[in-house]
Design a protein around this nucleic acid. Structure first.
Lengths: 116, 116
DNA sequence: TTGACATATTCCTATATAGGAATATAGTAT
DNA sequence: ATACTATATTCCTATATAGGAATATGTCAA
């Protein structure tokens, strides 16, 4: 069995690897847009928008609602949490960088203050 | 000009899309390991380890140090910050999600209790 | 120098794209 | 039914993988 690259529809990590799909998600954040509105906003071809939406839909990064002949899309941000959860475990290592040590200590301190 | 998928070496987003490379990064976190040690830890073939390291090295997610005939690798976590920065802008939306509202309220409440 | 060890690279191939163009599907209005 | 609008899908092709096997490169030790 020959392995190739992990499918874009395998998970959120792979879906958002494509810069255009990140742009699409950004365009949708906090609002609902139809395909045509996205086409107008981003200036991409309609099939291109639909195809990228299809990938995002398959990993549940966007949700779709039918409204007459329109389809209204919105972001399902919860699907980004696994990425946040994975990345966050390394935060201390980039924060430990001398350049950010001060910020890091401040953050720790304010957390400790809050907890008391 | 025909476009294909974004190269794995294009940026951190694409490099970490591959599950094995995330596993490799996890194996390296907080320590330095030689290729052989990684081979032993993960149970992969040596060429496979070297090839994945090569991709991670090209996007600066790992740093390499020569030590005699060994090469010692370590994680450069700072390269994960752009991912954190991108994902974090959506945090409010997954926290505000109705499905998780209850959890969210509980979390808030327990914090407030602690704060008093 | 020779051998042993550590690591990187090359060669091979099935696979999954991304984008453009063309076309299909579906819902609405007249 | 027909025309129109909105969106999805199909067809095409150059491209970049991932993994296995084989091989190359580099470094040390006797």
């Amino acid at each position: 069995m020959v392995m190739a690259r992990t499918r874009t529809t395998f998970d959120s990590f792979n879906a958002i690897a494509e810069p255009k799909r990140r742009e699409l998600i950004e365009a949708l954040v906090g609002k609902e847009l139809t395909v045509s509105q996205i086409v107008e906003t981003l200036g991409w071809s309609q099939p291109m928008v639909s195809k990228h939406l299809s990938v995002l839909k398959q990993v549940n990064l966007v949700l779709e609602r039918k409204e007459g002949r329109f389809r209204v899309y919105r972001v399902n941000a919860a699907q980004l949490k696994p990425i946040q959860d994975w990345v966050i475990q390394f935060e201390q290592y980039w924060s430990n960088n001398l350049d950010h040590l001060e910020d890091y200590l401040n953050k720790i301190q304010s957390k400790e203050v809050k907890d008391e």
